[in-house]
Each structure stands twice: as C-alpha cells, then as structure tokens.
C-alpha cells in the first residue's frame, strides 16, 4: 500500500504561534543558565576584593552587558509566567479532601515569588 507521510519541516515551530511560544519558553532556560553564570561572576568578583567588585560593576554598566541582561530579564519573566501558569496542571493539591482550585495554586506561587523577591532585595539593599 502506498501511503503519504507529511514531512516535518526542520523549523516546524515557525508554523504555529503556539509552537513558537513553546520554543521561546524552552529557550528561556538558556537565559536561566546565563543568569547563574553572571551571578557566579559577581560572587567571584566580590570574593577577590573591592577593586575587583568595582570592575564588575563597571563592566555590568556597558551597553552590551545591559542589553544582554535586559533580554535575559524578559526571558526570565517568560519563564516565571509560563512556569507558574502551568504549575496547577502538573500538581493536584488537596486540602480537607477537596481539590484546591487552580487559580489559588497560581496565586500561591506568585505570592511566594513576591515574598522571596522582597527578602532578597532587603538583604542586598539594607
């Protein structure tokens, strides 16, 4: 029997908006890794003394470094929104025998996010 099998385009994720959004979501992981590298460079600079820390601050102010970090920031926010948004579908939380509504699970994630962000900001800025 001869059948027809539709070939998959190499860049198949350009064919649908939802597929493209998915690939962008997956690529946010690259910026997660970049942020870790950037923070480790900061730790290294602080560890090496005040002069080294100042060099890190100077370099972080260069336009290309700011550009990278602004893009990374946007991808991190995409990660946050998609991760928290999908969380209630991956986990079922029960309280007193009843299923906690998905909205409450999402809200709890954002609440934890705000609290942790405030703690970190307070630690760094105080």
């Amino acid at each position: 029997m001869t059948v027809y099998e539709r070939p998959v385009h190499l860049l198949w994720w350009l064919e649908r908006r939802s597929y493209l959004l998915f690939v962008l979501r997956e690529l946010s992981s690259v910026f997660v890794a970049w942020t870790v590298v950037y923070l480790l460079l900061l730790v290294n600079a602080v560890s090496d003394g005040p002069a080294s820390y100042q060099r890190f601050l100077d370099r972080s102010g260069e336009w290309w470094m700011v550009a990278i970090n602004v893009i990374a920031m946007l991808f991190l926010l995409l990660h946050v929104v998609t991760w928290f948004g999908l969380a209630p579908r991956a986990m079922v939380v029960k309280a007193r025998g009843r299923r906690v509504p998905p909205r409450q699970i999402v809200a709890a994630h954002y609440f934890a996010w705000l609290v942790l962000s405030a703690i970190v900001a307070w630690l760094v800025l105080r």
């Binding site: 972080s60 970090n69 946050v80 934890a112």
Partner: peptide
C-alpha cells in the same frame, strides 16, 4: 529559578 533569579538579575543586571 522562577522564584529567585528574576529579582537577582533585576538588581545586579538592570
């Protein structure tokens, strides 16, 4: 990463 990285990158990167 979702909980902690955005604030750290926002402070030190932006």
């Amino acid at each position: 990463a979702a909980l902690m990285l955005p604030i750290l990158l926002f402070l030190f990167g932006v």
